[in-house]
Design a protein around this nucleic acid. Structure first.
Lengths: 299, 299
DNA sequence: TCTCTCCATAAAATAAATTTGTGTCTCAGT
DNA sequence: ACTGAGACACAAATTTATTTTATGGAGAGA
């Protein structure tokens, strides 16, 4: 009756499958099968109903889940309390919004590695919408995304707030500021991809009978947005911090438009599981790092 | 960071040595060394000071002990809650007073084996005094002995109360009852060994300037006491229940003396550790078994 | 029906833990 | 001092567990 078996059990229960749990735990599917089989044999009880497309907890299994989580939480607390920092071990799946990759993520990674050398990260860059789902389905342990977070299963702490700016190449023949929306609409608007908050906000600006049709180029890569803007393909709406360098050497410029852009409020979010000790710790670290003034400097 | 390692740690801490812990856990001393070394490495912390003749907990170790015990208690609770009976596994070191061996012990063993087939017992028969010490030093998990128990570290529950009777062979030329003490003193008094409650109580009866010197034959084996009494070597003071057969067929008889003998109140006692689940369970079973009227029948 | 996904199972390969056999150190008792 | 017993550390070999690789079967969906 191993802790490893209990941990496996918890992940299978959360993810609803042996295979996905295997991926999450960096093991093969038969290894997971063996651990669960062992646990079931030790307890003399069936823990999962193997249905065709997913496994579900039996009543006994549901009962065990509570204990198993308390057990793992206790272990985490114990490690924190009596172990040295290096004793905090594990792999955390972290989802990060791209803006943050371009600002302070590397500093966080550095600091984390310094403080907790045995914690490793698997970083995934994606849109806040996707990451929210992945948090809920336990595919991610922690994410830095655009808030606010409404889901009660998730805990979130504010990280930083970035302003979104209208940006264009100086070569673009913009009319005098503030640029009216109908003039703006002459160029494609390049920004975050569809299904993001800024994309929707901009789209909403152009709703109305007297408004011109607007072409929007949603892009999942901020670097590409910057590239396209530099090339004068259109105007863009991105956090000013991520183009600090381009602004400084004059290759891009910020302009005011008829309508200002909303701010982006980033938060760190993680599932409220009893064993989210490490995630909570990293979230705290992130608050520190994101709050530091130098955080805005690019790379 | 295994539960087995934590369990080992707890036993080493309680017993104050690797070797004794090894004996307790049915393992070799290097195995224990390895487990502790592993735990220390995982935590990055030294848990024991290896002094010359014993090991003592470091501050960190003391800190860990609390967590480890909570962890083991949680495991036991979990097994009890979600596992089937057969999932309750383990070896319990049980100390038993000989009177109980002769009355209801076998029924308890039978019942335990039926209810919890995976629990095994290591039974030791000894005097209550010795067993009390062994409970305190964690060499025994549970004992059935003569109460009451004053030690606050021990929990005890009443089991049964046996009367102690003056017994002699019918061939012994006893004066009319109640036999005065000074007549009694003509024969050796055969009873439990020195350092037992009855031995002391009888000795006390003969304290006083006008009292005759008494010869007392303390014996650690009740069977031997019975044998010697049958042979007419002297009178004895033993629980009447253990000689039910001899009384029935007239080979021994009970007589009244000037001073009555005290009762023997047996209790089940175990250390108040958080992981004493199984011991507590067996104690409860013992209460049932000892309370059953048929308990008095021999074998 | 065919295929895809998902879990179970068996055998082989790794990895871990245990035992066996010594070594060292210290204290207690000559 | 010297010696012996007791207690833990260490190393090599063995045993035991766990994991992987490879494959089979069963059900859902096209």
């Amino acid at each position: 009756m191993d802790l490893k078996a209990l941990e496996t059990f918890v992940w299978v229960a959360h993810l609803g499958g042996f295979r996905t749990a295997a991926d999450r735990l960096n093991a093969t599917q038969p290894a997971i099968s063996a651990r669960i089989a062992q646990l079931e044999e030790d307890l003399g009880v069936r823990l999962f109903d193997r249905e065709t497309r997913r496994v579900t907890l039996t009543e006994k299994g549901l009962n065990l889940l509570g204990y198993a989580e308390r057990m793992l939480a206790l272990r985490a607390e114990m490690l924190q309390a009596v172990g040295e920092k290096g004793a905090v071990r594990g792999t955390i799946r972290l989802g990060v919004a791209e803006s943050i990759v371009h600002t302070w993520l590397s500093r966080l990674v550095e600091r984390l590695h310094y403080l907790y050398p045995a914690v490793s990260l698997e970083i995934e860059v994606d849109s806040s919408t996707v990451m929210r789902e992945e948090l809920l389905s336990h595919q991610l342990d922690l994410a830095f995304l655009v808030g606010p977070i409404a889901e009660p299963q998730l805990k979130s702490v504010p990280l930083c707030s970035y302003d979104l700016a209208w940006v264009a190449s100086p070569t673009l023949p913009l009319p005098p500021e503030p640029v009216p929306l109908k003039d703006l609409a002459r160029w494609p608007i390049i920004t975050f991809s569809r299904n993001t908050q800024p994309f929707g906000a901009i789209q909403d600006m152009f709703v109305g009978s007297d408004m011109p049709a607007v072409r929007m180029f949603g892009n999942s890569s901020l670097a590409t947005v910057v590239r396209m803007t530099l090339d004068g393909i259109g105007v863009s709406a991105i956090p000013s911090l991520v183009i600090a360098r381009e602004l400084a050497d004059g290759r891009l410029k910020i302009f005011q438009a008829e309508r200002p852009l909303p701010r982006l409020d980033f938060v760190a979010a993680y599932a409220k599981k009893p064993d989210s000790y490490i995630a909570a710790t990293i979230a705290t670290l992130a608050v520190e790092v994101a709050g530091t003034p130098t955080a805005g400097l690019l790379l």
